[in-house]
């Protein structure tokens, strides 16, 4: 579904991604772990071109999206993204946050979008917050809304950029539960996270990134029980 070929990204002198190759298949839940500065967030943000790759190719559903002629806005409609800092639109209510993109992009009528939004809000138990503003919600609630906002576009894949890193510890669970539910529904997911429990439980493949490349990739069982490369062994000994 997503094919990444020899992906490089440099920020001025900083060579962040050094030739990443990967293939995400439909329905997979890819969990990306690694030390900070390893390029995992940059890798994720390249997948929907929030960062423009310096070189390399990214294919999504058979389309070469790194081609400058591609209308990236159209592509992004099918790729949901959830951010570390939620990034809910502060000037809009929760309902407007969820319906803005589908309505403005003329994918749904206002009524359809509202109905869809309410049923999605039910799924995360936040129907009562439809008319609140983001500033009135807790971090965990904001992140659940952010997930719902992406889902309202009916994406083919969901990208998560450290979705629980900015949360108070007691709110991490409620967000992970929503993500687990989403995984069970069959959504293709790429998740950058430090939650090893989530990686073990939900991931179909786990990637270890370090120094701008994928150093190891395996099933969660093999990844955690039988790590091969020394950097990963060292990493796991620190975080587990």
């Amino acid at each position: 579904m997503i094919i990444v070929k020899d992906l490089h990204k440099t920020f001025e002198d900083n060579h962040v991604l050094r030739g990443v190759n990967y293939h995400v298949h439909q329905g997979e839940k890819i969990v990306v772990v690694g030390p900070s500065g390893s390029g995992k967030s940059t890798f994720l943000r390249c997948l929907n071109l929030l960062e423009t790759p310096t070189s390399g190719e990214i294919w999504f559903d058979g389309q070469l999206i790194t081609d400058p002629k591609v209308n990236i806005d159209k592509v992004r409609q099918h790729m949901g993204m959830v951010f570390q800092n939620f990034n809910l639109f502060n000037n809009h209510t929760i309902m407007e946050n969820i319906t803005l993109a589908p309505v403005k992009l003329k994918l749904m009528s206002k009524e359809e979008a509202s109905e869809n939004a309410l049923s999605l809000l039910d799924r995360v138990g936040l129907r009562g917050k439809a008319d609140s503003y983001p500033s009135q919600l807790s971090g965990g609630q904001k992140q659940r809304i952010a997930i719902v906002r992406s889902l309202a576009m009916n994406p083919r894949v969901m990208l998560f950029d450290e979705p629980t890193s900015a949360l108070d510890p007691e709110m991490v669970g409620e967000v992970l539960d929503v993500m687990k539910g989403l995984a069970e529904s069959g959504m293709t997911m790429v998740v950058v996270t430090h939650e090893m429990g989530f990686a073990r439980e939900v991931g179909t493949r786990v990637l270890f990134m370090d120094e701008g490349n994928i150093m190891e990739e395996n099933t969660p069982r093999e990844f955690f029980n039988n790590p091969q490369c020394p950097r990963l062994q060292e990493f796991l000994s620190k975080v587990l």
Binding site: R76, G80, M81, F83, N85, A101, L105, A146, M153
Partner: peptide, 23 residues
């Protein structure tokens, strides 16, 4: 205005102009 607001808008498929105008 926080850069994340723009990124969130663009990640949903809104164009540059739409993100500017609505967000």
């Amino acid at each position: 205005v926080d850069k994340g607001q723009t990124e969130a808008g663009r990640s949903l498929g809104l164009s540059k102009a739409q993100t500017m105008i609505y967000i």
